[in-house]
C-alpha cells in the first residue's frame, strides 16, 4: 500500500480525525484519552455499518483485528488500515512482526510496548488529545498529536560524545566530518544506543540515528532526557535520505520522492522508509562517480567541494521551510 489517508470516525458525541501515511503507526499515552473508545467505534461500525450510528470516512477500508485467529484473519485482509487495541498480546510477538513485513496493509497499533522487532518511525508515534480546533462544538473532536517532535536543536558543547547508530558508511561520514569536534562512537546498531548513553552519563551526547526505524528506542531515550541527561537527537529519516536531500534534490524525480515519500514507498516491499531510501540512493548513483555503498563511504561525498552541501543539509534539518511555517 502507498499513500496518505485521512481517517474520520464520528458519532453524535465524538469525533476522531487523523492521517495515516506509513505502514506502522503507534498510538500510546495516558489512560482515558480515548484509545479504546476509538477501537470500539471502529469495531461497531465494522459489524453494523451505518446502522451503528457511526460514520467512518476513509479512502481505505478500516478493520479491527483482535486475537481470535488473528493470523488467519490477517491473511484475508488486504489494502486496508488495520487497527489493533492494546489488550491484544500477539502485538509484541515475532510472528506478528513477520506478518506486518509480509502484508500490504497499514497498521495502527495501540500499545505502550516498545515493539523492538518492528522498524517504525519516531515521527509516527502519537497520543490522542482533545483538539482546540473545534472547541465549543457539542461534538468532542479528538486528534492525534506526535509524542516525539524532531525540532531543531543546538548540538551541545565541543566535549560532547556523538553516538552514531551506524557502523559503516554513515559512521565513517560523521567521524570524518565531526571527529575533530566530538568524540564519535558507533553503537553498532540501534538497540545499543541506550546502553552507550547510560555508560557516558557525565558528558553531553548527540545521538545520530535513522529516525525512520528508531521508534522502538525513542521512549527510553526520552526517559533519560527527563532524568536530566544532556542528550541531543539528530534523527533524519536515514543517512541515505540526507545524502539524497543534499546532493540530488535538484533532480525533479528525486525531489518529488523526498517531498512525499508515502506516495512512492510500497509498504509491502519496504517495511521501513529507511530501507527504501538506501535502495533509492544505490539505484540513483549506480554506475556514476557518486556510486553509493552502505559498506564504506565513497570518498566523493567527503570531498571538500561536496561536503558543504551535506553539512548544510544537516544544519538545516528540522528547520521549517517558509512554506511550512505559513502552513502551520
Amino acid at each position: 500500500m502507498k499513500g496518505q489517508y485521512r481517517v474520520t470516525i464520528f458519532n453524535k458525541r465524538l469525533r476522531f480525525e487523523f492521517d495515516i501515511r506509513r505502514n506502522i503507526t503507534v498510538v500510546r499515552g495516558d489512560s482515558a484519552t480515548g484509545k479504546t473508545t476509538l477501537i470500539g467505534m471502529l469495531s461497531n461500525y465494522e459489524q453494523n455499518g451505518v446502522a451503528s450510528g457511526i460514520t467512518v470516512n476513509c479512502a481505505k477500508k478500516c478493520v479491527v483485528l483482535d486475537s481470535i485467529r488473528w493470523q488467519v484473519n490477517l491473511q484475508s485482509i488486504s489494502d486496508s488500515i488495520v487497527f489493533i487495541d492494546e489488550g491484544e498480546k500477539f502485538i509484541g510477538s515475532d510472528e506478528f512482526a513477520a506478518a506486518v513485513g509480509a502484508s500490504d496493509n497499514y497498521f495502527v497499533l495501540i500499545t505502550r510496548h516498545n515493539l523492538p522487532n518492528l522498524p517504525y518511525s519516531v515521527q509516527e508515534i502519537y497520543g490522542i488529545r482533545i483538539s482546540q480546533k473545534y472547541a465549543g462544538f457539542k461534538q468532542i473532536y479528538n486528534e492525534f498529536y506526535p509524542l516525539y517532535e524532531a525540532d531543531k536543536q543546538e548540538y551541545g558543547s565541543d566535549s560532547a560524545v556523538m553516538v552514531i547508530e551506524d557502523s559503516k558508511s554513515g559512521f565513517e561520514f560523521f567521524e570524518a566530518v565531526y571527529g575533530k569536534k566530538y568524540q564519535c562512537v558507533s553503537a553498532q546498531g540501534k538497540s545499543n544506543v541506550y546502553r552507550l548513553l547510560l555508560a557516558c552519563s557525565e558528558k553531553a551526547c548527540i545521538v545520530v540515528a535513522d529516525g525512520a526505524a528508531f521508534g522502538a528506542e525513542i521512549e527510553r531515550i526520552y526517559h533519560l532526557m527527563e532524568d536530566g541527561r544532556k542528550i541531543y537527537l539528530f534523527l533524519p529519516e536515514s543517512f541515505e535520505w540526507l545524502l539524497l536531500k543534499a546532493h540530488f534534490s535538484e533532480n525533479n524525480a528525486v525531489a518529488k520522492v523526498l517531498e512525499a515519500p508515502e506516495n512512492y514507498i510500497d509498504s509491502k516491499a519496504y517495511i521501513s522508509w529507511e530501507r527504501f531510501f538506501t535502495d533509492f540512493l544505490i539505484k540513483q548513483t549506480a554506475g556514476t562517480y557518486w556510486q553509493y555503498s552502505k559498506q564504506h563511504i565513497n570518498p566523493v561525498y567527503l570531498h571538500e567541494k561536496n561536503l558543504p552541501k551535506m553539512v548544510n543539509a544537516i544544519q538545516n534539518y528540522g528547520r521549517k521551510s517558509e512554506k511550512e511555517m505559513q502552513d502551520s
Binding site: 458525541r13 465524538l14 495516558d30 489512560s31 482515558a32 480515548g34 479504546t36 473508545t37 489488550g87 468532542i140
Partner: peptide
C-alpha cells in the same frame, strides 16, 4: 466525554 456510562466503559487504566 461519553456522558452517562457504566463501569465497563471506564478506562483500562
Amino acid at each position: 466525554v461519553l456522558g452517562a456510562i457504566t463501569p465497563k466503559e471506564l478506562s483500562g487504566g
